[in-house]
Every structure is written in structure tokens, then in C-alpha cells.
């Protein structure tokens, strides 16, 4: 048995079109249940859509955005979104929306827009790094 490993997760699929986010979320809960830690989750490519705060699926369906937020609240896990991938797909924080002269924003804490340096840092810090795509 290995105890106290640090995991890094990379999520590359969009909610409701790819099974990847749901797999990653279930895996994240299983990691914690086995006594390990999650160093961070990085959302890249279509995975950035997990950070869309205006997501409003029917009430009998899992709200993946809300589920990631809860994971962050319960276990203080960083949720980082690739800023370049996000801007391309119309996802912006309040400060980015101001910078681009946009009237609205749809990325808010605990999700943070960040660069690929953060991904490389997570890959280096984590004992185990797993891609969900």
C-alpha cells in the first residue's frame, strides 16, 4: 500500500459531450477516499467548459461545474483552467472580460484562469499524473 500520494489530474473533455469530466470527478473522490491528496486539477482543450459558471443542466442531472466547486470547497483542491483555451471558447473571468471589453463573464473562483506553466508545475509536483480525455 502506498499512502499519501499526490495526484494531478488533467481534464480535456467537455461536460455532457465527453465522459472524461465525470470519470475524472469520480476518480477524484476515489483518490480522497483512499487517503491520498489531489495537488490540482487542470482543465485544457474542451475541458475548459467545466469551468462555465452559467451551466444549467436539468435538475435531475449532475451539474458538473457545481460538483467541481464542491470538491474544491471540501478538499481545497485548485481548479486551474488554461487561459488560452478558455478565451478561444468564450470563457472569461471578470478581469479578462473587462480587458476584452466584454459585457459579461462566466468564470469565477474557485476556478482560476492560468497558463500552461501551471500545468507543467502540476506535472512535476504530482506523484501520479492522469489524463482524462
Amino acid at each position: 500500500m502506498h499512502h499519501g500520494l499526490h495526484y494531478g489530474l488533467l481534464v480535456m473533455g467537455a461536460p455532457y459531450s465527453s465522459p472524461a469530466p465525470h470519470s475524472a470527478l469520480r476518480f477524484a473522490h476515489a483518490i480522497i477516499a483512499r487517503g491520498h491528496k489531489i495537488a490540482g486539477v487542470f482543465f485544457y482543450h474542451d475541458g475548459v467548459h467545466n469551468g462555465a459558471s452559467l451551466m444549467a443542466p436539468p435538475q435531475d442531472e449532475l451539474n458538473l461545474h457545481e460538483a467541481w466547486r464542491e470538491l474544491n470547497q471540501q478538499h481545497a483542491i485548485p481548479l486551474d483552467i488554461c487561459i488560452a483555451a478558455a478565451l478561444r471558447r468564450g470563457l472569461m473571468s471578470e478581469s479578462e472580460a473587462q480587458r476584452h471589453g466584454q459585457p459579461a463573464f462566466n468564470v469565477a473562483p474557485p476556478f482560476e484562469l492560468t497558463g500552461l506553466g501551471q500545468l507543467l508545475d502540476l506535472q512535476q509536483r504530482a506523484d501520479r499524473f492522469i489524463t482524462f480525455a
Binding site: M1, H2, L5, F27, I31, A33, R34, H36, R128, I130
Partner: peptide, 8 residues
């Protein structure tokens, strides 16, 4: 749980 065990 077995998936996590495998990654260990």
C-alpha cells in the same frame, strides 16, 4: 477504488 489502487 481498484482503479486508484492500480495507479498506486
Amino acid at each position: 477504488d481498484g482503479f486508484v489502487a492500480l495507479t498506486e
